[in-house]
Design a protein around this nucleic acid. Structure first.
Lengths: 191, 191
DNA sequence: GCTACTAGTATCGAATCGATACAAAACAGT
DNA sequence: ACTGTTTTGTATCGATTCGATACTAGTAGC
């Protein structure tokens, strides 16, 4: 699939261009983007590391740098004090949003909607297949997750048991499991 | 489009994993992949640089390294002696092919074909739109190019005037122009 | 208590990356 | 021819990144 390869590279190039405007590296911007879109179960260094495919050590450094520039804050989790929770500051959020994702969206808006839906489904299936064969995580939105359960008043994550607001359904989660297939991933730990 | 972002990152991660097996960096492997799939008009350092979104200087270094390992050869073009033509050696080709693109393909093969066709068309349109708005090149196959012309015996590139064999139609070209839209890109020079 | 495991940090060396400056060839104009 | 401009690729340098290893602190299981 040359197309996917090309689009991925363009995405990367675009990020690189954007990030150099602010004196950051491409990875830093990718990290901010991730934090701007992940849910509250997935804002840890480990999650970032798995999402970006980079080792913990490097992520740790990047986080230190971003924190020193006032783009994010980190604070230890109250229940498990090993875990650091990352949160964008106002400045960080602004920077993450100020992307040229606009260009992409305006192009996407001009395409026929049902074609896009089919395309999205196909890509999602591809991702699910890759997860199965290679063990990668999908990192998709709770709204498409196998663990999503409906309660009387709203939604809930079957894995953590926590309630989900409507706005949570669009955020990406490190525990995401696609709906359609197949062999469940063994997950260790309860949260 | 979180999906595209995620797939792009996975592609990158996969390359990184693969490349470290051979003691190369991710970019090096991407370079080999590109050379394995580009046509004979697009095998120059400049093309690589634009495809990967990396500066000329860096590319030059990478090429030197890859050449020293016997993965590619470079020789000056006969007509324009500024230009270096890059070609994979047998060893380089083997390494480029030995990817785990297999995993991707086997997953793709299990998906419904017409969905994939729709998806491919949508992505192609997206790419075309991006090219138009951001000035990036599409780097797609000659078979989908506006410059493709049919002659009595076969095909020809309308831009360079050179004949194209059937096998050329699947290779990616730096001068590629999508069919459907729109405002033509000004291209300088005749080749 | 003890052991095993997980999350994150620190440090170090190799390598990448981008910026700048540069050389050589093509090209355009006069 | 000749002068300046553009294009292609190289060289060098410093900052940054990356991954490997070793490490600390916290949790969990027995």
């Amino acid at each position: 699939m040359e197309l996917l390869e090309r689009l991925g590279l363009l995405l990367q190039t675009e990020r690189r261009r954007q990030s150099s405007l602010h004196g950051l590296s491409e990875v830093h911007l990718a990290l901010l983007h991730y934090l701007a879109r992940c849910n509250r179960f997935s804002n840890t260094p480990r999650a970032v590391s798995e999402y970006l495919g980079i080792t913990k050590g490097t992520i740790s450094q990047s986080i230190k740098l971003l924190e020193s520039r006032g783009l994010l804050r980190k604070r230890p989790d109250k229940e498990d004090r090993r875990i650091m929770r990352l949160a964008l500051t106002r400045k960080g959020t602004a920077l993450a949003r100020s992307g040229s994702a606009d260009a992409w969206h305006s192009v996407l808006a001009r395409l026929p909607k049902d074609d896009l839906a089919v395309a999205a489904r196909a890509l999602q299936a591809l991702l699910a297949g890759l997860q199965e064969s290679n063990g990668y995580r999908t990192f998709l939105q709770c709204g498409t997750c196998r663990h999503l359960e409906s309660t009387g008043s709203g939604h809930r994550c079957g894995l953590t048991g926590q309630p989900l607001k409507a706005s949570d359904l669009d955020r990406i989660c490190m525990e995401h499991q696609p709906l359609y297939p197949c062999h469940p991933r063994r997950h260790r730990g309860t949260r």
